[in-house]
Amino acid sequence: MHIAAIITLLSTVRVLARSSNESQKEAWVPVDDLNKLANLMPASKLRPAVGLNLKYVLLGIDENVAPDTTKATTELYDIGTCLRENGFAKWIIGFISPLALSLSTRPADLDRMLHVQGFQRLAGHHFFDLDTLTGENIKWLLLKDLQGILRGGINTVYRVATAGGNKPTTCKGQKPNFVVDYTAQY
């Protein structure tokens, strides 16, 4: 059995073991110390996060947008709160982006998977205006607030473990404006 299937099965058992009343009464508060997860993130060529504290681990999933728009909006789900004490966090971090991408065309299955993993808490949204970009996927991205305009005490964002987002090899047969889905962890 594939490790992702085992983890999903174990997570399903964990969720089902909790009573529905108990889970409904729980107040959601994102944890504020995720530094243990920082060491579990996939290796990259980005500048290391020296002196920074990991505040959030978010799973970004493209929302369904109108095909005639050039704005891509992404829903950001808090996955760090659930992964913080999860013994399988290293493996989940490695497979959750591709799994979410593969389920993105089946919203009911995607919602079910997010719920089973405990990732149903929407933390926010972000969007890119793609009018001037080439559509090339950037698997690893480091964003720094150099002007002090970000809110919530966040001044550095890493995008890691990107799945999808690559432009097609040819645009033949595509509509003038089309969406290339991707998922990533932030």
Rank of each mutant, 00 (worst) to 15 (best):
M1R: 14
M1E: 04
A4N: 03
I6K: 06
L9R: 05
S11P: 07
T12R: 10
T12E: 13
T12C: 08
T12S: 11
V15K: 13
A17I: 09
A17L: 07
R18L: 07
S19H: 08
S20N: 06
Q24I: 07
K25G: 02
A27N: 03
W28S: 02
W28L: 11
L34K: 05
N35C: 02
N35S: 15
K36V: 06
L37Y: 09
L37M: 03
L37V: 00
L40C: 08
P42K: 06
S44D: 04
K45V: 01
K45I: 05
R47K: 12
P48E: 01
P48R: 04
A49V: 09
V50M: 04
N53H: 11
L54R: 00
L54T: 04
K55H: 07
Y56G: 12
L59Y: 03
L59N: 03
G60I: 04
G60S: 00
I61N: 11
D62G: 10
D62W: 07
V65S: 09
A66W: 04
P67A: 00
T70N: 06
T73N: 08
T73M: 10
T74L: 07
G80F: 05
T81A: 06
C82F: 13
R84A: 12
E85R: 11
N86M: 02
A89H: 07
W91A: 12
I93E: 00
I93H: 04
F95A: 10
I96N: 09
P98N: 09
P98G: 05
L99R: 15
L99A: 11
A100M: 01
L101V: 02
S102F: 10
S102Y: 13
L103F: 13
T105D: 11
D111Y: 05
H115K: 15
Q117R: 01
F119N: 06
L122M: 12
L122K: 11
A123V: 04
H125Q: 01
F127S: 15
F128G: 14
L130M: 09
L130Q: 02
D131H: 14
T132E: 15
T134K: 11
G135D: 02
N137W: 05
K139A: 14
W140G: 02
L141E: 15
D145M: 01
Q147R: 13
G148M: 10
G148H: 03
G152H: 10
G152Q: 03
N155V: 08
T156I: 09
R159V: 15
A161N: 15
A161G: 12
G164W: 06
G165Y: 02
G165I: 05
N166W: 13
N166S: 00
K167H: 02
K167T: 14
K167I: 14
P168T: 05
T170V: 11
T170C: 06
T170F: 12
K172P: 09
K175Q: 15
N177G: 03
V180G: 05
V180F: 15
V180L: 07
V180P: 12
D181M: 11
D181V: 02
Y186P: 03
Y186A: 14
